[in-house]
Simulated assay, not measured.
Amino acid sequence: MGQDYGIEPCIEHYTCMVSLLGRLGHLDKALKLIEEIPFEPSLMVWRALLGACVIHNNIELGRMAAQHVLEMEPQDESTYVLMSNIYATARRWDSVASVRKNMKSKGVKKEPGLSWIETQGTVHYFTVGDASHPDVKLIHGMLEWLNMKSKKAGYVPYCNAILLDVEDDDKRRLLWVHSERLALAFGLIRQPSGSPIRIIKNLRICMDCHAAIKFLSKIVDRELIIRDINRFHHFNDGICSCGDYW
C-alpha cells in the first residue's frame, strides 16, 4: 500500500488483515501484525483476534486478546461469553465458572438470547426454550422432524455450545430450543412454501445453530437468512455466506 500506491495503512486496514489472517488460522501472524501496528491497536483489532481464537480454539491467545478488550471496555459482555465458549470447548468448567463469577462481581449481565420473525404483518418473538407461543405444539413437532432429518443428513450436535456442565443428552435437547431454531420452525410452518425465511437475532449465533441451519437449508430447500449481532448469514443449499467465520 505504501510503496506502490502511497497509501498509509490506517487502523481499519490492520483490523481487516487481522481478521483475514485469523480466518485462515494464522493466529501467530495475526498477533505479530498487531505488535507491528505503529499506533495503539483498537478495540476492534483485539476483537478480531479474539473471534479467530474462538473459531480455532486457541485458549491462551484468546485470553490475552480478551484481556485487551476488557481493558478498553470492561462491561463488554460478548467478550466474557466468547471466553466461556473457549473454556467450554476445552471442558474447563472451572474456568467457565470463574468467568461467570468475574462477570457477576463486575455487574456484567448476559443479555438473554432473542430471535424474531415477521409473518403476515406480525412480529413473533422467541427466547430460548420458549413455550409461550400459541403454536408451541406445532413448533416442537416441526423441530422434532428437523432434528430427525438433519441427523440422517449427517449433522452431529456441537454440545460445547451449551455452557453448562450437564450430560450430552441434555445439551442436545437444549440446543434444539435455541431461539433462532424456534423462529425457524415457526417460519417453516407459517410462511409460504419455497419462500426465504428471514430471522433477526440479538446475539451472536452459536456454532451449533450455525452448523444445524446449514443442513436445514438443504433439507427444506429454502434460503434461510439470519441477521445476528455480527453480520447477515445467508444459508442456501448447505452453505453459509460467512464461510463459517463470524
Rank of each mutant, 00 (worst) to 15 (best):
M1W: 04
G2E: 15
Q3D: 10
D4A: 12
D4S: 11
D4R: 12
I11K: 10
E12R: 08
Y14L: 04
M17G: 02
V18D: 09
V18M: 02
S19D: 15
G22T: 05
R23Q: 03
K29Q: 12
L31T: 01
I34D: 01
E35G: 04
E36N: 06
P38R: 09
P41N: 03
L43M: 08
M44L: 14
W46P: 02
L49W: 09
I55N: 06
N57Q: 15
L61R: 02
G62Y: 02
M64N: 00
M64L: 07
M64P: 01
A66I: 03
V69Q: 06
L70P: 03
E77D: 12
S78T: 11
M83R: 04
Y87P: 08
R92L: 09
W93V: 05
V96K: 00
V96A: 05
A97M: 02
M103D: 02
M103C: 09
K104R: 15
K109P: 05
E111Q: 14
L114N: 08
E118L: 10
E118P: 08
T119I: 14
T119K: 08
G121F: 07
T122P: 04
H124G: 00
Y125D: 02
A131M: 11
P134C: 01
V136R: 13
K137G: 01
K137W: 08
G141A: 12
M142S: 05
L143S: 08
L143N: 03
W145Y: 00
L146Y: 01
K149S: 14
K151F: 10
K152G: 07
Y158N: 15
C159Y: 05
A161H: 03
A161Y: 00
I162D: 05
L163M: 14
L164R: 15
D165Y: 07
D165W: 06
D169Y: 11
D170A: 15
K171I: 08
K171Q: 00
L175E: 03
S179K: 00
L184P: 12
R190T: 14
Q191W: 10
P196T: 10
I197C: 11
N202M: 07
L203W: 02
L203A: 04
C209W: 04
A211L: 11
A212D: 10
K214D: 02
S217Q: 06
S217D: 00
R222C: 03
I226G: 08
R231V: 11
H233S: 12
F235R: 06
N236A: 12
G238Y: 06
I239N: 13
I239F: 11
G243S: 06
